[in-house]
Design a protein around this nucleic acid. Structure first.
Lengths: 219, 219
DNA sequence: GCCTGAGTTATACATTTGGATAATCTCGCG
DNA sequence: CGCGAGATTATCCAAATGTATAACTCAGGC
């Protein structure tokens, strides 16, 4: 009557850590930190709970690793957005803004992850540092793109504009991710481009006409 | 050696419910939903855990009540912002925007609360309805204020502008609450007014000059 | 082909959690 | 001043959680 011991495959440390981290992220995204119990994580990753402790000294370690992986991924996506885009400042800024307002960045799970980790980030110095670094990197990239526009602007103005544009993108990101059914396809991107343009006094919509919703250039 | 039974005071149902709700909110704001255990809530409210069940059938009931109270409070604050302000459309809009960008709305605990409840809201139909109602009420109020501006704008444009302004306010709210040290006093409000004005093509800063940082009219 | 070591599972444990129930204390009312 | 009602506490309980440890099994080296 006692079933045989579950059979398994040995896998590389790399792939096991990755799948445990992925399981953690998806659980936090769906149900918040409280849903990411060791047992739930193990089940989703297809292993038994004990294995977690084999790869992570403690559950907090896994949590931290999952958050760091999240931030790294976001940064990479930001950099990708400028890949292969023209040299014209308006075009580059438009591509950057649009990239933050469509999947995979604009995604219900991403907002859920971000919210789920907020408290852990606030109470953990290590995560706080990771978070601030990622946040400022994004805002600095935005400010650099704004500074490259053919306008006259002093440092204080650039800073204020970067804060405003960043807030606008963040707000649209949250709105669009949380209420995906309330917006027509591409509506969030259009609103984002028009509003950022209005704040900066340039026309971004005209410079993004050649970029489709998927981010690929139309040919 | 056995200490006597802890002495207590009987209080009205109203005040007990209120203090339990307040305790729940502060705990969620500080440490997320996981920090709001029945024992922690009871301790913060100065009662024993069993009392929670006397006033709320289950812990989920208390959680729901705390969220509903939060949303109601936000709505009230939004209405208060328009109290005693002049009739000029620009002035009213400026007051509304500014109210969302200073305490008590702009507050680290408020963002923490919002984030902490996000998953619970997403997975609970009752809370979801409360949330959507509160959200749309805010956005509609904003759209009405925008529509009152002396400009020409069709319905589609008004909708898009309301979405954009709402996102901007939300984003600044999050940024300002999470990184309070990064901004000079009033900087968030100034940026918000200027940016909303830019999006709508009106000058809100001029019409808010008579409103100080505390929201009281200067005399 | 076996045998050793590391990857993986199974089991156990102390703690914490939300919930249930009975005992007890407070306070308004006669 | 007594007393009854119900507000509040104390105690108990089953389930879930993170962690520790022992047992097993897969894979490569001799």
């Amino acid at each position: 009557m006692d079933q045989p011991r579950r059979q398994y495959r040995r896998e590389s440390e790399q792939s096991r850590r990755a799948s445990l981290i992925a399981a953690t992220q998806s659980l936090v995204a769906e149900g918040g930190p409280q849903a990411a119990t060791v047992r739930a994580i193990a089940a989703r990753a297809g292993v038994t709970p004990g294995l977690i402790r084999h790869y992570f000294r403690t559950k907090d370690d896994l949590t931290r690793a999952a958050y760091i992986a999240l931030m790294d991924g976001m940064t990479d996506k930001g950099a990708d957005a400028l890949e292969g885009v023209g040299a014209m400042p308006e075009e580059r800024l438009a591509a950057f803004v649009a990239a933050g307002l469509r999947p995979p960045v604009l995604d219900s799970a991403a907002v859920g992850l971000w919210a789920g980790y907020m408290h852990q980030v606030r109470n953990d110095p290590v995560l706080l540092q990771v978070h601030e670094a990622g946040y400022l990197r994004y805002r600095d990239a935005l400010e650099a793109l704004i500074a490259a526009l053919p306008r006259e602007a002093d440092a204080a103005q650039l800073r204020a504009e970067a804060i405003a544009c960043n807030a606008l993108i963040d707000g649209l990101w949250v709105e669009g991710s949380l209420l995906p059914g309330s917006f027509a396809p591409g509506e969030i991107i259009t609103i984002g481009l028009r509003s950022v343009g209005a704040i900066l006094g340039v026309d971004l919509l005209a410079h993004s006409a050649m970029v489709s919703d998927t981010g690929k250039k139309l040919t």
